[in-house]
């Protein structure tokens, strides 16, 4: 098994290790309107991951967008048990950070997020000042 290691900035990361399967969107995500919090399904018709469930996935996206009420939707995901294991974005914003605190969802910023392939298995490992994203090939 071969690994590629990427170095991400931890925005919210209290755990030592998280392992999971990537669900990668090429389009920005607006929690309000794009995600059904009750099912965890992406319902944005223009999304590249339309119809897929974010639940228990490592959700990767360029960035988030849309109404600031999106923070409440991320809280609701946690409440309904439909939250992803972690979120990795190219660029963070206040709505996403607030929502991940409220929903207790680990959040990483990684400018080179595009290097993470769709459906890859990844291990997120905390080091001193960063989180290593180990991508399995």
């Amino acid at each position: 098994m071969k690994y590629k290691i990427l170095h991400a900035r931890p925005i919210l990361f209290d755990r030592e290790v998280i392992e999971g399967t990537v669900l990668k969107s090429s389009t920005p995500i607006s929690p309000l309107g794009d995600i059904n919090p009750k099912t965890g399904e992406i319902i944005d018709p223009r999304s590249t991951i339309k119809g897929q469930k974010i639940t228990e996935k490592i959700l990767v996206a360029p960035h988030f967008r849309g109404s600031t009420v999106g923070s409440y939707v991320l809280f609701a995901l946690a409440k309904y048990g439909t939250a992803p294991k972690a979120i990795i974005v190219g660029r963070i914003d206040p709505m996403l950070v607030a929502g991940c605190v409220l929903g207790n969802i680990p959040l990483l910023e990684l400018r080179t997020y595009e290097e993470i392939p769709s459906n890859a298995l990844v291990i997120l490992k905390k080091t001193n000042n960063e989180v290593e994203v180990h991508v399995k090939y």
Partner: peptide, 16 residues
């Protein structure tokens, strides 16, 4: 505080 209308914030907002 903005985001007070139920039509805007829906069940997630109400619940939070």
């Amino acid at each position: 505080v903005s985001g007070v209308s139920y039509l805007n914030i829906g069940d997630p907002g109400l619940e939070f």
